[in-house]
Amino acid sequence: MTTTLMRPSGAGAKEPRLPRGPKAARAGGQAYAGPFAYAVLVLFSIGSLFPLVWTAIAASRDNNRLAQTPPPFWFGSNLLDHLKIAWTDADLGKAFFNTTLVAGISAASVVFLSTIAGFAFAKLRFKGRNALMLIVIGTMMVPPQLSVIPLYMMVAKLDWTDQLQAVILPSIVSAFGVFFMRQYLIQALPDELIEAARVDGASSWRVVWNVVFPAARPAMAVLGMLMFVQTWNDFLWPFLVLTQNGNPTVQVAVAGLGRGYTPDQSLIMAGALLGTLPLLLVFAVFGKQIVGGIMQGAVKG
């Protein structure tokens, strides 16, 4: 599994302009979609969005209304009140601050370390390069959940329970990130640029700084967003180490609402909505870039 499907145009996720040839007899992927295709897409879009919209609907109602059939299909009047209560009950202000910090630091670190490692794997020659790259690919297959027990023991020993560094540290590198940047740089960084910098007497660090980073910027942005989303939504590990003293991430706080004894379902929904909104906003703004990034990271065997 080594080649990705990267377009030379880079991570800007531009759709290739479809060739405007004669319209007849287009084969396969180039065919125009019929009404059936649109019907399926609309159906799936509704399926994708409905639970999210309904979260908001449920958050705007009260418990009485949620305990009636048929279930509500339109907004009630309590949305703002419930959002406010959920915000204070689950300490979401602090949770947002914590999560932004954790996800921001993790994403920045993953992007930086992945770019320099990806550059080395893509463009430099050194002994053991292929073997090391195989190890990177192999580690992508090992789920981090299996390591939580010793990590927990480490955190307990260092007395880091309920402290953010316990969540940040295990997520500051990513094998996927290294792989992603390598695939991008192989195609997007012309060897001539590196050579030219070398001829001018640039050291390897200078090359990284003045040539690699500018060339990799689009992919770095995409990787940063992917990592931010991933860390923002991380659940098991933060749930294990951030429980006791009210220093939660958003996911821990939202789960706490659900697992606590809040009798009010609409409040739980309000919390879930608040926990999801920031990422939905990010997707609404950068959706195109994120889609492009995921499609570029797609691996072909």
Binding site: E15, F44, S48, T55, T276
Partner: peptide
């Protein structure tokens, strides 16, 4: 070939943006 193809792709990805916690509770 679709109209608004990017729109559909982003919409299909909205659940991916939703966390396990929020999705499970809903």
């Amino acid at each position: 070939r679709l109209r608004a193809s990017i729109f559909y792709r982003v919409v299909m990805l909205a659940p991916y943006a939703t966390s396990i916690a929020a999705a499970s509770l809903v």
